[in-house]
């Protein structure tokens, strides 16, 4: 149907320009990651390009950094990674526990409640992150709150809510109300029908939402930049503080591993939502 948008046979300067600009866009989008991937396999000490020889030395260095009590291990890195994972786990748990019942209500009751709530829960998406970071910081500082790890969990939950809710609503919409009614007419309590029938059917959507939450929380930089403390630091902040002065190739190795994990997670979401095309 859309064959005509770009001419197939002829096209001359028009076709050339379109493909040129598209390739340029693609190049700009992917170049930083490609460079990091290449440089992380360099055998040299410095970040000169192209690498004279390739090796896994920076990956070996990275493993040593993560080794507990090793010669080259870095306790601050291990603590930062652990904090990142803890924050992400709590964020995923909280977001899914609150979004599943909300999605249920929104889909089943519909109408104005649904529109209003969906608008309310999209707000964190359009709100500038810097301002959120500063606002949360000002609240925590002026009320003198001792929040520990919740300093990061609370703002991260707000950030992931739009994504988790959207995926839960998407999954909920495709569940027939008759399945629930059947369970209830066979004697199940509404709660039981919800937990045993609706939640399992929503599972792909819930998991997709959770993976989004994991990616966002684990990579979050801006709000965390304002909220971190010496005791509560995440991996991106650790990397930032380490590279303010100069780039260390072992940080590039860590970066590339994170990139690979993110890509694997995105492919997982793509598979979970197969055909529904709701990645954006």
């Amino acid at each position: 149907m859309r064959v005509g948008i770009i001419p197939q046979q002829s096209g001359g300067s028009y076709k050339f320009t379109i493909y040129l600009l598209a390739s340029l866009g693609l190049l700009i989008a992917t170049l930083p990651v490609i460079i990091i991937a290449l440089m992380s396999f360099s055998a040299a000490e410095t970040t000169s390009f192209p690498p004279q020889a390739y090796s896994l030395r920076w990956y070996i260095k990275m493993f040593e950094l993560f080794q507990p009590n090793g010669e080259n291990s870095d306790a601050s890195l291990q603590i930062a990674l652990l904090t990142s994972l803890k924050v992400a786990a709590l964020v995923m748990l909280i977001a899914s526990v609150v979004c599943v019942p909300l999605a249920y209500v929104l889909v089943r009751s519909g109408g104005r409640l649904k529109n209003g709530m969906e608008l309310l829960f999209t707000l964190p998406l359009v709100f500038p992150l810097v301002i959120l970071g500063i606002a949360f910081l000002l609240i925590a500082e002026s009320l003198d709150l001792e929040l520990g790890i919740w300093r990061l969990v609370i703002p991260h939950v707000a950030l992931v809510l739009p994504f988790v809710l959207r995926n839960c609503v998407g999954a909920m919409s495709s569940i027939d109300i008759e399945l629930e009614q059947a369970a209830i007419s066979l004697g199940a309590s509404p709660l039981r029908a919800g937990v045993d029938i609706v939640v399992p059917l929503m599972k792909p959507g819930i998991i997709a939402g959770l993976v989004f939450a994991l990616i966002i929380s684990f990579n979050e930089f801006t709000i965390t930049y304002f909220m971190y403390t010496v005791d509560v630091t995440t991996l991106p902040i650790w990397m930032y503080s380490r590279t303010v002065s100069s780039l260390d190739p072992s940080t590039l190795a860590i970066s590339f591993v994170i990139v690979l994990i993110d890509l694997a997670l995105i492919l997982l979401i793509d598979k979970l939502l197969a055909g529904r095309n709701s990645l954006l």
Binding site: G25, L26, A29, T30, L31, P32, V33, I34, I35, I36, M39, T47, F49, I215, N219, F221, P236, M239, Y240, T243, L247, T251, L252, S255, I258, V259, D262, L263, I266, L267, D270, L279, L280
Partner: peptide
């Protein structure tokens, strides 16, 4: 996936790429 990449990936990591480049 290639076009989505700038959005999914950590901004910090992507800026490393630009710094090297």
């Amino acid at each position: 996936v290639a076009i989505l990449m700038p959005m999914i990936l950590n901004l910090l990591i992507q800026s490393y790429g630009w710094i090297i480049l």
